[in-house]
Design a protein around this nucleic acid. Structure first.
Lengths: 209, 209, 209, 209
DNA sequence: GATGAATGAGCCTTCATTCAT
DNA sequence: TATGAATGAAGGCTCATTCAT
């Protein structure tokens, strides 16, 4: 037990560093972020940081993966709500839509995508990884739900992958443009309006009768 | 006339530098891009470059604006094709959709958005500017066309702004996810499939039976 | 005559540049002074300036020499007033002392000495030249006057060189310390007090009985 | 004790840098002196230097202050010799005069004044500081001694500040002119001659009987 | 294991100087 | 002759990274 405490400590320290690193990267961008600033934000000395991570690149990769996992978990939690639709399909879709908007457009998610995209040339693998864990996984989970709904008669016959793709498109793209890619705060009523409009269009296109 | 030659030369030189600057920024990102590399790419000496632009910052701003203007022009040219729809609305929409995809997803447009987003913290104004000249202007032009079509009975009654927003959403978001934000080449047949699916869904939702 | 005008012009231009150069050097120091700033101050373009002077070094040398000559002229004019002492030696000395203080401590003289001293390592010859034309020449002229006064019984027997040296010392050194080497403005009453004290001490030491 | 070693080391390092910096500044002037050259002279790497001093400016300020303190100490040590005059006032004054000349005119003192004066426009505070710690403090200390001597009957009634000012003037100004502001070596016999002449004149003006 | 101090490399920027007009 | 534009060289400063404690 006394042997596990240091291990715990070490793991904690690592996570603290990762969190601080992501924050600083998000605020400054990869190159602008100085290792010193990250160390300060994490409350450790620079060499300590280098003791946990080989170099700035590895630190970036780990921080991105670490945050991507957190975002993924939130996404999955939302889509799972579609497993039991209940009687009212539209209400269920609106509920999911609103929740997804909240998750996809919060600062952490945005910063994650922004960073991954901005470092595309230096870290092509990170962009892939982030996309895989966020967008792709979400689209697949959603496609699964839509396939079930299509089979059970809640939605018309369709390609579930395309339908899921479009459902997400109707949610995220308008939010991006309204929020200026996250620079402007969007009032909750507008967020809900986007969700409602998306569900409306989706059901007109994919609903039965 | 012999007096205009230097002016021409100077303007040309400036544009050459701007083009080279954007290329290098796109390849390396803002911070990674060294002014020396830009000068080399433009075929001039570093001080020459500083003779045209005060700062690396100003150079960035100008290069972004310069490229944004080019992209804007291409966008406007495409939407203008909706002015004369002709008899077949669906065919016209498909034509525009395919063209928009080609314009929005080419390397220059992508790099523009990526850079603007990546330098959000350092150049907040540039992101706004780019958004304004590309997405916003495009959405407005499209909303204008849709309003006309709605009035003339080609489309059902609707909020043109929302309809335009969604039409663009159905185009760009799926393309982003299929191309991995531009990292994977998407075969033309897939591009067309995205366009067709977008138009199909759009017409199901906004067409008049 | 029409052939002389351009020559005149050219000479004028040269003097304008020299004046501007000295001003800028005085304000910024040799290295800090940019050739561009000098050209601007003179109202000419940089290459024009290089047409008159081979390089920045030559420009400095010429500007210093030019100003040194002006200062020398003023110095000599003052000492000449001792040629005809008149009856009252003390009054004559006080008059000369006050005038010398005004000449030695005006901004141009000060800047000249400051610049020459500051560039001692890069332009050793300029310091020598300036010293020769200002301090040394003044001391010699004064020694001549004192020799005559000594012979004519106005002053006691003494080494005129030493006496002149000390007379000047009693004037300049206190002024330097009171004015903080030219940084603080010294009220006229204080300037006169320094002159009077110098003459008083000088006459106590070198006067007859 | 083992914990103090690093502190010692660090302080030592700092002083080594300050010494090297002053040497290089004295040799080249402020602007001409490259930070690299200073670092080389101090035997450290450039960033080490920037670790101790924020700027080249701060480095300059500190180096000047550091040297000014050393010079001040030497000055004070000399004037203290006037506290116990002994029977022979003239001998004491000659002794002090000769010592002061040695201190005021050694290379370090000269370079200090030259640098402070040369950078007057960029570092006005440094000139003030140097003047305060060297000339002013020396003049005041000397005035104190003279006041005592005046009271005890060794010197006639007089304004001690003016007397001190003049005593120093009679020493430094002639030395400056003879040494060409430090460019020419002055033989010891001449140095002593200046001191003797100064004391002679001073006593003729301020002595009793 | 954690830290203060040190370093080698690199980048932005400026300047004196020279062509081409 | 006078100028706008261009350049080679160099300098201040920062940063990721590594020893010695």
């Amino acid at each position: 037990m006394s042997a596990q405490l240091p291990a715990r400590r070490r793991a904690d320290r690592r996570e603290v560093i990762l969190g601080a690193a992501f924050d600083v990267f998000a605020r400054r961008g990869f190159t602008q972020a100085s290792v010193q600033e990250i160390a300060d934000a994490a409350g450790v000395a620079k060499p300590t940081l280098y003791n946990h991570f080989a170099d700035k690149d590895e630190l970036f990769r780990c921080a991105m993966t670490y945050t991507a996992d957190a975002v993924t978990a939130a996404n999955v939690a939302v889509t799972d709500r579609l497993r039991a639709t209940g009687a009212n399909l539209e209400a269920a879709l609106v509920d999911v839509a609103r929740r997804l908007l909240r998750v996809c457009c919060d600062d952490r998610s945005r910063a994650l995508r922004r960073l991954a995209q901005g470092q595309l040339t230096r870290f092509p693998d990170v962009l892939e990884l982030v996309q895989e864990r966020t967008s792709s996984r979400l689209a697949e989970a959603l496609a699964d739900r839509i396939a079930r709904l299509s089979l059970s008669g809640g939605l018309r016959r369709c390609d579930p992958a395309v339908a899921a793709e479009q459902f997400l498109a109707l949610l995220t793209a308008p939010m991006d443009s309204r929020s200026g890619l996250g620079t402007r705060r969007v009032p909750v009523t507008d967020v809900n309006a986007v969700a409602d409009a998306a569900v409306d269009t989706f059901l007109r296109a994919y609903g039965v009768t």
